[in-house]
Amino acid sequence: MISEEIEKMLLSKSIENVFKTMMGYEVSYSDNDEGGDISKHEHYTATIGFAGGWNGFVSITCSTDTAKFITSLLLGLDSTKVTCEDIRDAIGEVANMVGGRFKSLFSELQNSGKEVFKMSIPSVIQGIEYNIFAPADSGNTKVVVNVKDGKLVALLALQEDSNSK
């Protein structure tokens, strides 16, 4: 069991690191930011599952405009020219990288010498008026960062596998 505070810190560091090293972009934070109501307009969510000694998933959600901006940064394309497929590939890859960075930081923290979890494949959700939920007993740690004029909301669900305890 790790505290929500530590989960938040690891998740924030993972996002900051991926944006800085892979896209050359520094994300920023606003105090007490809940992320607003992205779900009222078209938006994207990318999730990646964790399976092993610890189980869970990480998801990132942002508006279409923010997703286009991220895609243009990652793929080096003009944001007006990116296709839906480019966006899906890019934010799926960002979720994959955030999950991978989180795994690495979490492994260092656990310092057990065992692999903490393996990662599944990314899945991308695209639409309006939808929400994503994690099981109540797996925590629901949320981190919100500012990306250009929009927000990116990351959700972490994590629980230790009952057979590994």
């Binding site: 999730t47 189980n55 599944s120 929400n131 994503i132 994690a134 797996s138």
Partner: peptide
Amino acid sequence: QSVPSVISG
């Protein structure tokens, strides 16, 4: 397996 995620909308 990972824990399930649920999308509703």
